[in-house]
């Protein structure tokens, strides 16, 4: 196994774990954590490709990952504010109980 494919496999496994968390947990906060984990797995891919790529001196994948971290931080703040607003309205963060928009 080459170093690049080892890093890519770890990122794929982390993405799958995050996806499983986002799809199976009932708590809204844990769904957000799962989404964050998927974003982090993508960042690991970007940095691994930057490190083992043809032109690491151009810093493209590296800066892509830095910007992605910044956007993910903003997303986490807004997502948690939404969870708190949901809690204030319905006194529950259990996603299975949020059926107000169900047809």
């Amino acid at each position: 196994m080459t170093p690049l494919s080892a890093y890519l496999l770890v990122a794929a496994l982390l993405f799958a774990v995050g996806l499983a968390g986002a799809l199976t947990r009932r708590n809204a906060v844990l769904v957000l954590i799962g989404i964050e984990m998927m974003l982090n797995a993508a960042n690991l891919n970007l940095i691994a490709f930057w490190r083992f790529g043809a032109h690491p001196e151009q810093l493209t994948g590296f800066l892509f990952a830095i910007f992605s971290i910044a956007v993910a931080a903003a997303e986490a703040a807004v997502g948690l504010a939404l969870v708190i607003a949901l809690w204030r309205h319905t006194r529950s963060v259990n996603l299975d109980e949020q059926t107000r928009m169900k047809g």
Binding site: A12, V17, L19, A20, L23, R26
Partner: peptide, 20 residues
């Protein structure tokens, strides 16, 4: 702590990992 359809979520995640 898991939603009722969690089996399908786990299956989808495993499929995604298999493809990747």
């Amino acid at each position: 702590v898991f939603s009722p359809g969690s089996f399908w979520g786990l299956l989808l995640a495993a499929l995604v990992f298999a493809v990747l």
